[in-house]
Design a protein around this nucleic acid. Structure first.
Length: 881
DNA sequence: CGGCAAGCCTAG
DNA sequence: TAAGCTAGGCTTGCCG
């Protein structure tokens, strides 16, 4: 990687300080570099022999197989690109030492179907050999990047921990510098700070990626497990098996099920590489490394301060600048910021007139350039400067001294920011940040131009896009750097505040102009930091486009270059402004666009802290409202959905919440959060199953005794499958999750959504009058489900279980639990079949529906002791239940 | 019941 | 240890 990364910087008279010259030749070189990165990426997963329901534990469970897939990015003529294989411990393996062979599977049809072919399989006789073979494998391929989906508990981490358990430190042997101790480390279990972020694996000369963590920054998902990522990135549904199933299949004495295990992990190792390729992770990261001038791994592991500094210091050094490095104390003493961005309180309502959205293009960077705001041009606050004359005065987190003669000389070359800070003009001295940001923006424009002419060249286009993106990122965080308070290495409140204040002033001026120009007939209804939402009363969409452009041009002319109010070519028609930072609309980007795009900001449709049902229903409702403008249709839809929820006829997946787990140390004592609750529960059962810090932990809400705090109703989704007595808390989902967001929106139209629900005919739910003692706790089963028949004897009763059966608890228990067991069996079969079924893929949802012919047939086939009609009957019962 | 802190996630 | 920024809305549980 280092081969390609740098040399440009020292090249002959680069066009700008970062060495980007967008020339024909340059692009060709870049292209050549990007067609092949000459990188080798190896993905690794392991299978260990687990015990019961427990997760693999390196102190107990030996590794049975190491799976790998290697992507070798070289021109094709030089060899195959992807090699996939496994090293298997087989105690029966007669050959001492390892034997390598290219196997043709003995059951071709089965295996071909599963995609198991062309595997490089080697057998070893024990774990020790497995590790040796693995080390050799690594040296044979010599991968630049080693990756596992989760490398702390599984994959590479498990291998290292297991080796450590066997008193081996194989970290150095895996590295490219086997002799050195430096740079090879991994912390097995506990980490001095208790945080998991730092338990990373370092192997000298190789980059080790914990893929799910990388993906967290790459794409926005509700849950970051392999299956969900594969679904969203690769558009493939991949089944999830428990460790228990995998272990039992692997160890089955007939070896008949082993292929499933192999298939599972091979899908995974291959999938990892496909995900990396699909998202262009390696390409993008390398490109960022080049743009920022930092190392590959640092792009992923370090913050934006590091990036800004890398770019800024490269500019500063030749100019003989040294950055200040304030102490913690100095930083803490710095003045607090006095300005905040301007966020207007929106005129909250449903807009049927067109609303035009204008925003300043890269406002903060533009201000830095236009007004030459920078550390190196700031003279400090005017009041201090005037008083200070001889002595030192406060500046940023340090102090400044200017001789009066200098101040006097500069008097005519100073601009004063709206909050009273002085900056010298750019002919006196051009600010470093200003210069840096200017070059970044210019380069970005060049790159974007180049992208247009290379649309057909996928590799080059991707690279340019990555570069363009990197530049945009860095321009936007440069302001953050000046204001970085608590962690900042070089914050300067004067600079940061001036930028914010100027931005605020600019936006205010723009608003004023719009309101003072009656011929536009426009009214500003909302604005945030750099944007204006303008209602065009009585205007058509076309007129809105014309006037919008005119406003944008007029306002842009009021400001120095490169400040520009851009008509982002967005007209909303119609739209709803809910509150600050929350709005939705049908968006038109061009005048001739026929179908609008649904665009939502901040509301529940785009937030990950509610379940799928909430965002789906809300989005549907808004769409119905926008297209039909008929509230009764919305009402009808909402009521139907509520009924489905109450009847429990809703896909479990739509009711799953997932929130980030901060780690045991990440919560205040006494914190009461679902993710923490689940983590505690899992820890009690199996320390290895604790969610990773930063992991999004899924949960659902079930029914329970009335009065219980919500936290007691939190369950993991898989509990739902294991324990059929649990029922989704339809009431909670409706009244606490679905209706409130709907109501927030529709109350703006004077509609009370809760009324719809209250008036709705509901399923009769009979709650037992008295819940007494332990017996009822155990038997929560029937307390909250809709029936007026006794589930045991089927006699009519007003209670959950009729009096007769209540008096015969033993029979009741037996009847109920055996029925539960039966249902449970069918249900687990059902979900299993459904999740692996390819039949209704276009639905993109597991149907778990009786109407699915494929499901029904498969289920019937798997339950050969069941007659079709009986099965159907049972299934109906279960689904109702 | 209202006010408040903690927690989460988003806009810009 | 290393860590861009602030505003803002919303839920939940606790306290007076």
């Amino acid at each position: 990687m280092s081969k390609q990364k740098t040399s440009q910087i020292d090249g002959p008279t680069p066009k700008n300080s970062f060495g980007f010259r967008i020339t024909q030749q340059n692009l060709q070189t870049a292209k050549a570099l990007h067609q092949h990165q000459y990188l080798t990426v190896m993905s690794i997963e392991i299978h260990a022999e687990t015990r019961g329901e427990l997760s693999p534990n390196p102190e107990m469970d030996p590794i049975q197989v190491i799976f790998y897939s290697v992507y070798n990015d070289v021109p094709e003529s030089e060899g195959p690109q992807i090699t996939t294989g496994a090293i298997i411990v087989d105690k029966t393996s007669s050959t001492p030492g390892s034997s390598q062979e290219k196997i043709t599977p003995h059951k071709p049809t089965l295996l071909e179907k599963s995609g198991i072919d062309n595997l490089v399989i080697s057998y070893v006789s024990d774990e020790q050999e497995l590790l040796d073979e693995f080390i050799q494998l690594v040296h044979r391929w010599d991968p630049d990047v080693m990756v596992g989906f989760e490398i702390q508990m599984l994959s590479l981490g498990y291998i290292l921990q297991r080796a450590a358990h066997l008193s081996l430190n194989i970290c150095p042997s895996l590295s490219r510098l086997p002799g050195t101790k430096d740079g090879n480390r991994f912390s097995a279990e506990k980490d001095p700070w208790g945080a998991d972020y730092n338990t990373e694996i370092h192997i000298a000369g190789r980059i080790v990626l914990n893929l799910w963590r990388v993906l967290k920054h790459e794409i926005t998902l509700n849950i970051y497990d392999f299956e969900n990522v594969a679904y969203h990135v690769l558009h493939r549904r991949i089944p999830l098996y428990s460790f228990k199933s995998l272990s039992s299949w692997f160890n089955h004495r007939t070896h008949l099920y082993r292929w499933r295990v192999i298939d599972h992990y091979i899908t995974r190792v291959k999938g990892l590489l496909q995900i990396i390729d699909q998202l262009d992770i390696i390409g993008k990261t390398s490109e960022f490394a080049r743009v920022f001038g930092i190392e590959f791994y640092d792009v992923l592991s370090r913050g934006s301060q590091y990036r800004v500094e890398s770019m800024m210091l490269r500019l500063a050094k030749p100019m003989n600048y040294i950055p200040v490095s304030p102490s913690v104390h100095q930083r803490a003493r710095m003045r607090a910021p006095e300005c905040i961005q301007l966020t207007l309180e929106p005129d909250s309502k449903f807009y049927t007139n067109p609303v035009v959205v204008l925003d300043f293009q890269s406002l903060y960077p533009s201000i830095m350039i236009a007004y030459n705001y920078c550390f190196s041009t700031c003279m400090g606050r005017l009041d201090l400067l005037a008083k200070a004359h001889e002595g030192q005065y406060e500046f940023g987190c340090t102090s400044l001294r200017q001789s009066p003669s200098v101040i006097r000389k500069l008097e005519d070359d100073i601009t004063i920011s709206p909050n009273g800070c002085c900056f010298v003009n750019q002919d006196v001295r051009k600010g470093i940040i200003s210069k840096m940001v200017e070059e970044i923006l210019n380069t970005r424009i060049m790159v974007k131009k180049a992208m247009k002419s290379y649309k057909d060249d996928k590799a080059l286009y991707r690279m340019l896009n990555a570069r363009q993106l990197g530049l945009k990122l860095i321009a936007n965080v440069t302001y953050g750097y000046t204001g970085a308070n608590f962690s900042g290495r070089m914050p300067c409140i004067e600079v940061g505040d001036s930028i914010v204040r100027k931005a605020r002033e600019s936006l205010e001026r723009s608003i004023k102009l719009v309101e003072e120009t009656p011929r536009w007939g426009a009214r500003v209804v909302y604005g945030d930091t750099d944007s204006l939402f303008i209602e065009m009363k009585g205007k058509s969409k076309d007129e809105a486009f014309v006037i919008g452009q005119e406003i944008a041009d007029t306002i842009s002319n009021m400001f120095p270059k490169p400040m520009k109010l851009k008509f982002e070519k967005v007209v909303y028609l119609p739209c709803v402004l809910q509150t600050k930072k929350r709005y939705v609309g049908f968006m038109y980007e061009t005048r001739d666009q026929k179908e609008p795009v649904f665009d939502a900001k901040g509301i529940e449709t785009v937030r990950r802290d509610n379940c799928g049902a909430v965002s789906k229903i809300l989005e549907r409702c808004i769409k119905i409202l926008f297209t039909s403008k008929d509230i009764s249709q919305v009402k009808q839809f909402v009521i139907r959905q509520c009924q489905k929820l109450l009847e429990g006829k809703v896909s479990l997946q739509d009711c799953v919440f997932a929130k980030e787990y901060r780690g045991m140390a990440g919560y205040k004592p006494g914190a009461c959060v679902p993710a923490l609750q689940i983590a505690r529960k899992r820890l009690k059962f199996d320390p290895r199953s604790e969610p990773r810090t930063g992991e999004r932990v899924p949960y659902i809400i079930v029914y329970g005794t009335p009065g219980l705090p919500l936290i007691q109703l939190v369950r993991e989704p898989r509990d739902m499958i294991k324990d059929p007595t649990l029922r989704l808390n339809g009431t909670y989902y409706i009244t606490k999750q679905i209706l409130p967001p709907l109501n927030r929106l529709f109350s703006l139209l004077g509609v009370d959504v809760f009324m719809w629900y209250n008036e709705m005919p509901k399923v009769i739910r009979i709650v037992p009058q008295s819940v007494t003692g332990a017996e009822s706790k155990k038997g929560t089963i029937s307390q909250y489900f809709a029936t007026s028949n006794c589930p045991v004897c089927d006699e009519q009763t007003k209670q959950a279980i009729c009096k007769k059966c209540m008096n015969d608890p033993q029979t009741t228990t037996v009847v109920l639990s055996s029925r539960i067991q039966h249902w449970e069996q069918i249900y687990s079969k059902l979900t299993q079949v459904c999740y692996t079924c390819m039949g209704c893929q276009d639905n993109k949802q597991p149907c778990i529906s009786l109407d699915c012919p494929i499901l029904f047939r498969r289920l019937q086939a798997s339950q050969d002791n069941l007659r079709g009609d009986k099965l159907r009957q049972d299934m109906t019962k279960m689904l109702d239940f």
